[in-house]
Design a protein around this nucleic acid. Structure first.
Lengths: 289, 289
DNA sequence: GTCTATAGAATGATAGAC
DNA sequence: GTCTATCATTCTATAGAC
């Protein structure tokens, strides 16, 4: 009997703490309760929390707010917001249009968030704080996953690069003849640049957005490997004698990469743009009419 | 007799101050000397300085060092260095290959120095401190000439833009027919991008290097005006029916602007590059051989 | 694995002396 | 017009608690 009463009052007390000081952890609550003469261990606190669906700070704050966040302090509101972002992200996996499905690791979540920020603001204007906020972490926590901002950048770049190069190769292989292979590769390239996941978009125009030569140099190898794909496609073309294939490649890649600067949705599709560019360079636009 | 002796000793004393405390100004020296019973005004100090070619801090430090800067303190060495940079700049006027001749105002000197830094490192990685050091000023002094870093950027951009647009128009007007006019305009465009003064180089690829949308928007008007020049040149071309002139323009401008990313001196000249691009787009590269 | 807290450096900009 | 001196902010990154 006494036991039962005690048990109930301990549970009530745990719930009171969850309501009054939602940010206290299990050991902090157990400690405080024990200091006040009650017998409970941290795992006991956790057991009661789980029973009521209150096992994380976010859940406790959510229960407390009940849709009305005004009752929370600024601090608590931020905490809640962050937790919700993190939960949403790891559920959804991808946060952009392309691909998706499988849940991503936190490392990948960070890469994707960073890609979006890098692509829209550039490397220098994107802070670790921005990236952290986007994945529901605090700045310092990001460093558990990546040793430096530069490594995040390189990670994003290599991920996007890996994706886009695989797709370009695949598309090219499906072509019937050299011109068709080039056309397909270009479609994928432009499409990745303007419609792809953020990691892919970065890959293309990042080359212009990085001002840091040291970072740039670390990427050069990847860029050269990518250029090699196009070099081979262009070397295979049956073109007029005397044409400078190197300048042809640079012209085509430049025109395509610049699309990222002027592209606005709706007017032309990536396919239209790429097809048009390849065709103009193939047949010329001159007409004596 | 007494007068003469007094005069000589006052002059010696001024020279002693110039040697021992070169960084004191004219009024500071006069004040100190008067405090020690000598009769001399600030302009009197200056008169003696001018007589011996010691009227500025830099000249006094130079005289003191006599080629051996080791006798100066770090502070003094910095001061001397800065003064020399400033003097050299305002004499030379231009500090890059193109144009030049007339001495530039300090405002223009700042713009040119900033252009070089912006072009090589980008906007964000260039600090007011960098710019100031390049023109021999201290950071705060830059703000006497420009209200903000953004204004420096806009100033650079507009200056380069004004220059390059003038040259492109001029070149185009000298052409014999529409294709010749376009070719000449392109030569000047590419040349400005890779061989021009730094203010000009920025104009082209800056469009990719700015990540700040607000700054970008302030530049959009200029960019559009520039694109209009090319739009008119391309509208005048006799080209095959069905060709999308808008995509032709974007392809050509993109290919040219991207040159700034891959250009290395020596391999191809700006003329070669531009001629080749225009020619490929005009006649096409296809060949059934 | 995430947090709190903060070090340590750099930045854009300003006030006021000279 | 340039300087000295400094403010207020922001940044990357780290240490150590939990």
């Amino acid at each position: 009997m006494v036991e039962a009463v005690e048990t109930i009052s301990v549970e009530d007390e745990v719930l009171r703490y969850a309501r009054d000081e939602p940010r206290l952890g299990q050991s902090a609550v157990a400690g405080r309760m024990r200091a006040r003469g009650m017998q409970i261990s941290p795992s006991g606190v956790r057991y009661i929390w789980v029973k009521h669906g209150l096992e994380t700070v976010v859940k406790r704050l959510q229960a407390l707010a009940q849709g009305n966040v005004d009752v929370l302090s600024d601090e608590e509101r931020r905490l809640l917001e962050r937790g919700q972002i993190a939960a949403k992200l790891s559920l959804r996996g991808e946060d952009d249009e392309a691909g998706g499905g499988e849940p991503l690791t936190r490392q990948q979540l960070i890469l994707h968030a960073a890609a979006e920020l890098f692509a829209s603001q550039g490397y220098d204007r994107t802070s670790i704080r921005d990236i952290a906020a986007k994945v529901g972490l605090l700045p310092g926590s990001v460093y558990h996953h990546f040793p430096s901002k530069e490594d995040i950048y390189l990670g994003v770049y290599r991920e996007g690069f890996r994706r886009i190069m695989g797709r370009v190769r695949e598309a090219a292989n499906a072509g019937r003849d050299p011109w068709d292979r080039l056309r397909r590769a270009c479609e994928v390239h432009v499409s990745g640049l303007v419609e792809g996941a953020h990691v892919e978009r970065l890959t293309g125009h990042s080359l212009a957005l990085i001002d840091d030569h040291e970072v740039f140099d670390k990427i050069r190898g990847d860029r050269d490997a990518y250029e090699k794909v196009f070099r081979e496609l262009i070397d295979a073309l049956p073109i007029a004698a005397g044409t400078n294939r190197s300048l042809l490649r640079l012209t085509l890649l430049g025109a395509m990469n610049w699309v990222a600067i002027w592209y606005r949705e709706g007017r032309y599709s990536a396919q239209q743009i790429a097809d048009n560019m390849v065709d103009m360079l193939r047949r010329g636009v001159d007409g004596k009419d």
